[in-house]
């Protein structure tokens, strides 16, 4: 539904987005993951025709955004909740947007009710809290009942209740068969929201596929070993050529599963006090992966 091919954006000397290609499919929530400054917002602006790619292109349902007729009925987006005139009321903000794409005016009040802003509909948006602004932004994204939805960091600054609400909303939208593309710099957030992931670092694609697979691939598997005969265990591991490190009187073995480690220790005749497979934290893994992308770039002298 969204297809990017070799998408590139250069600002002066900096390459914000570098040959990015990916697909986003309908019926699923696709996370767009990368550290701050990785080029997520720039990519989203290019999808929406706000910024022109330096090269490459991106299409929605096979069309360039700028060629869509009444685009808000095809694509709804929340890029920055602060994009509103502070002197204009929530209802009037939605009114002009609706009018621009000939969306019937009753839809404005429906959306205000959906996001829970009915009671403040006639208040100036300048006095809104960040949470209220996010809700207003989501209302404007949903105004045209679009098949494709883009959200840029929608949970930023929200309270837990608000975060939960947005997650549920995105799942509902995807279940209705819509394409939902949501960016975040937090893998833990995406792990709970997105079924698919597009991961970028320094403007380049690092991964595209399911979230589960990414997490499997990303998290480093280690086995924690505790034993009264640590010296013997060390000896055996070295003999086997295993990599390990020590931590609080225990050994963390990487690159082997617990069966292999258990057998090796048994063969060395050591007593086991603990043999437990460990998973690294998601955030650690993610930082490692995108960190590699950073290093890769630095190494190239780009």
């Amino acid at each position: 539904m969204i297809e990017a091919h070799g998408l590139t954006k250069r600002y002066g000397d900096t390459l914000a987005v570098d040959g990015l290609s990916f697909d986003v499919t309908p019926g699923r929530v696709t996370g767009f993951l990368g550290p701050n400054g990785a080029g997520k917002s720039t990519t989203m602006r290019m999808i929406l025709g706000l910024d022109r790619p330096t090269s490459g292109d991106v299409r929605i349902k096979g069309e360039h955004y700028r060629r869509l007729h009444h685009p808000l009925r095809t694509v709804g987006a929340l890029l920055d909740a602060a994009w509103r005139h502070p002197g204009r009321s929530a209802r009037n903000h939605l009114r002009w947007i609706a009018r621009s794409n000939e969306i019937p005016q009753p839809r404005v009040d429906e959306m205000l009710a959906l996001v829970g802003l009915t009671s403040v509909a006639n208040k100036k948006a300048g006095g809104f809290s960040l949470g209220m602004l996010q809700r207003l932004g989501i209302a404007s994204a949903l105004l045209g009942d679009p098949e494709v939805l883009l959200f840029d960091e929608p949970v930023n600054g929200l309270d837990p209740e608000g975060i939960h609400w947005i997650r549920r909303l995105m799942h509902t939208l995807a279940e209705e068969g819509r394409t939902v593309f949501v960016s975040s710099h937090l893998l833990s957030e995406m792990a709970q929201t997105a079924q698919d992931l597009v991961v970028i670092g320094r403007g380049r694609l690092i991964y595209q596929g399911t979230t589960d697979e990414f997490i499997d691939r990303a998290t480093k598997q280690t086995v924690r070993v505790r034993s009264p005969q640590l010296d013997a265990v060390r000896e055996a591991l070295r003999g086997y050529g295993a990599t390990f490190e020590e931590e609080d009187g225990a050994i963390l073995v990487s690159g082997m599963d617990s069966n292999e480690v258990g057998e090796l220790v048994f063969a060395a005749g050591a007593t086991l006090h603990e043999l437990s497979p460990q998973r690294g934290s998601l955030e650690q893994a993610f930082m490692q992966l995108t960190g590699e992308a950073v290093e890769y770039h630095a190494g190239q002298g780009a």
Binding site: R66, W83, H85, P86
Partner: peptide, 22 residues
């Protein structure tokens, strides 16, 4: 200039991507 400052220019261009008519 206020539309550019508050970001509603972008919302406008999202709604009317050809820009000139609006």
């Amino acid at each position: 200039t206020t539309e550019y400052h508050w970001g509603t220019a972008r919302t406008t261009f999202q709604a009317v991507p050809s820009r000139a008519p609006v």
